[in-house]
């Protein structure tokens, strides 16, 4: 491992991952400075952090000029930021142009601005396992070369993730910056957004009748560990990141003490729409239509080999 300190910029620092990552990295003596970007006021949980090592800035990454100004600012130069971790993504199942702009154009703006500085040498992007296409003919384990979901009928939530992932891949050959894409399995835990958190939040969960695919859940500890390894290891490329716990969907529902009811597939969409409209769930079925039926576990052999990543955290319900 290199001994030089890393100065890290984190976008989406107020997200649950951003918050946990910041609080973890600040303890790491190999991290010199952390510059957090968000769109809200300085949250209370960052107020106790050492100001000599952490700074929070408001910045809209959609505004290229604003981003450029930040990168040309004295703060940025004084901090000597050399690593960017991009976490600014709409996690809630919202639709529309604004969401798409942040998810896709925000990523593009940021990556171009980073390359433009010439001083940022590492760009870490947190992607998702939902970028992979799931079919019954899939192998159980999907490696980084597995087919992506380019289905034009796919939900915007998936399309945005695929687009952002593809944008990062398009810049992978950059000579000045190493890009690392971490495609993560569903993260599960307290105070975390995400599909399976919303799914298991309910006391009654619905699944596609006649199907019970194997799923993998990722602990926040492993998410932070994977990003940390991506920051410090001299690597670039795409890595799948999965957790320690793999079981059928219904088994996780049982462990969560949720009542799991199988229903015919055509009923699930309208039922989910109705329960969302009544405020009974935040789970968005359309995103998981295929994942409710077909298994697609992430093969983490490459992450093991090159990043030294090994999942450790067990999911607690």
């Amino acid at each position: 491992m290199p001994t030089t300190k890393k100065n890290v910029l984190i976008t989406g620092v107020t997200s649950s991952i951003g918050r946990n990552l910041t609080q973890h990295l600040i303890q790491n003596p190999r991290v010199g400075f952390i510059l957090g970007l968000g769109r809200d006021k300085l949250p209370y949980y960052f107020k106790d952090l050492d100001r000599s090592r952490f700074l929070y800035r408001n910045c809209n990454i959609l505004k290229y000029r604003e981003l450029k100004n930040l990168f040309l600012s004295r703060v940025f130069k004084d901090c000597a930021i050399d690593t960017v971790v991009h976490l600014a993504f709409h996690n809630r199942q919202m639709h529309g142009k604004d969401v798409h702009l942040l998810n896709v154009h925000g990523t593009k703006n940021l990556i171009e601005a980073c390359i433009g500085t010439g001083t940022v040498t590492k760009f870490v992007f947190k992607s998702s396992d939902s970028v992979y296409k799931l079919r019954p003919s899939n192998p159980v384990f999907l490696d980084e070369h597995a087919e992506l979901n380019h289905d034009p009928e796919a939900d915007q939530w998936i399309k945005d993730r695929v687009d952002a992932d593809m944008i990062c891949r398009a810049y992978m050959d950059s000579k000045t910056m190493r890009i690392v894409i971490l495609r993560m399995a569903s993260i599960f835990g307290r105070n975390i957004g995400g599909q399976y958190n919303s799914y298991f939040d309910s006391k009654i969960v619905f699944r596609t009748m006649g199907f019970n695919p194997m799923i993998n859940l990722l602990h926040m500890k492993d998410v932070i560990r994977a990003i940390e390894l991506a920051i410090f290891k001299n690597v670039k490329g795409i890595y799948n990141i999965a957790g320690k716990d793999t079981a059928p969907l219904a088994t996780f529902a049982d462990l969560n003490h949720s009542f799991c009811l199988g229903l015919p597939e055509p009923l699930l969409g309208p039922l989910n729409w109705a329960t969302r409209a009544l405020g009974l769930t935040r789970y968005y079925y359309e995103v998981d239509r295929q994942r409710q039926k077909y298994t697609g576990l992430l093969d983490i052999a490459k992450a093991r080999r090159e990043l030294g990543f090994e999942p450790e955290g067990h999911i607690e319900f």
Partner: peptide
């Protein structure tokens, strides 16, 4: 066994 009584292939 992955810990829940299943192997990764189900």
């Amino acid at each position: 066994d992955t810990g829940f009584g299943y192997d990764p292939f189900g």
